[in-house]
Design a binder for these strands. Structure first.
Length: 302
DNA sequence: AGCGGTCAAGTTGAT
DNA sequence: ATCAACTTGACCGCT
């Protein structure tokens, strides 16, 4: 069984997640107003949106949903930081998390997380590494609360010495909590680290590799797409996860890295359909509309 | 209601 | 030197 995953937001369906800025929260505090109430209201709204998102996926044959890192906004911000138990509405929030977890389980919707570009485990700057570890621990908590089995990150920067950079990455991973390590995955990127670079790291540390075919096309290595797909697939101890996208201006355009509204069917390797099981997250700006079109073009009848 | 300025964080490469 | 890109616009406040 192949399933497609939607990333973070909806294009047409009226389901929206909220965020907050540190500036505004700090302003509330300076005005002696209660920022916790503001933040808990955002989280409650996000929980309602998540429930809607999971239901939508269930109704539209979308098998996975990636949750935005800002689900609990500013959780790790040095000047904001809060804990759920600080909220007056804490019990309701925990109940709604459980409700989302159960709904996703009942509908068979896989939930994933993708911490953003500021999580750099291999930075030479130890403050960056420390902040990254804290951010990952927040994702571990969030993953447990919603029942996500993937926390997917990139390998970080190169800093002029790729193998030293990968060594530093391998040093940091064992320091993470179990609930993060059990979910942590690496992904090949479009500028620095190929599947060839990361496969040995993943094997050594015992974490899976998310294969991003678009990144691999932007930054190829010795492996063909078929070979990389197979090798990445084999790193998984649970249902494998791949990414796909198409370049905004086509493969003859000058910027290959920005995403198109839809997936060009020619960019989709048909042999992926024989990989079972598999989750494919669709990175296309038209979001759920792009998934519907892709499924139709692939003639997948559910 | 609509719109504009603004928003935590790191690294890379295009301009 | 500056800035866009990266998983992604959404936030408040002014008119």
């Amino acid at each position: 069984m192949i399933r497609f995953g939607l990333c973070c937001v909806f294009h047409e369906a009226p389901i929206r997640f909220r965020t907050a800025t540190a500036k505004y929260v700090l302003k509330l505090r300076s005005l002696n107003q209660d920022p916790l109430h503001y933040l808990s209201q955002i989280i409650l709204d996000n929980l309602q949106a998540l429930e809607q998102a999971i239901s939508y996926c269930g109704e539209h044959h979308i098998g996975a949903f990636r949750i935005n890192s800002q689900f609990m906004p500013l959780y790790t911000h040095p000047e904001v930081k809060y804990q759920l138990k600080d909220f007056g509405e804490a019990e309701i929030i925990y109940q709604k998390f459980e409700r989302c977890r159960e709904l996703a389980k009942m509908l068979g919707i896989r939930l994933t997380l993708h911490p953003d570009q500021f999580v750099i485990l291999n930075s030479p700057n130890e403050r960056v590494v420390k902040a990254s570890m804290e951010e990952l621990e927040y994702h571990g908590l969030l993953a447990e609360l919603i029942g996500a089995d993937v926390i997917n990150i990139h390998a970080g920067g190169v800093y002029g010495d790729k193998s030293a950079a990968l060594d530093r990455l391998m040093q940091q991973i064992p320091k993470l909590s179990k609930r993060v390590r059990q979910r942590l995955t690496l992904e090949n990127d479009d500028k620095s680290f190929t599947p060839e670079d990361l496969l040995p790291v993943c094997r050594a540390v015992g974490i899976p590799l998310v294969y991003d075919i678009h990144h691999h096309r932007c930054l190829p290595d010795q492996f063909t797409i078929d070979e990389a797909s197979q090798l990445c697939y084999q790193t998984w101890n649970r249902e494998p996860l791949f990414h796909i996208s198409s370049p905004r201006e086509g493969w003859s355009g000058k910027k290959l890295t920005s995403h198109h509204d839809y997936i060009d069917i020619h960019d989709f390797p048909l042999f992926w359909l024989s990989l079972d099981p598999l989750t494919i997250e669709i990175e296309a700006k038209a979001k759920e509309v792009a998934i519907a079109r892709l499924m139709k073009e692939l003639n997948l009848i559910y």
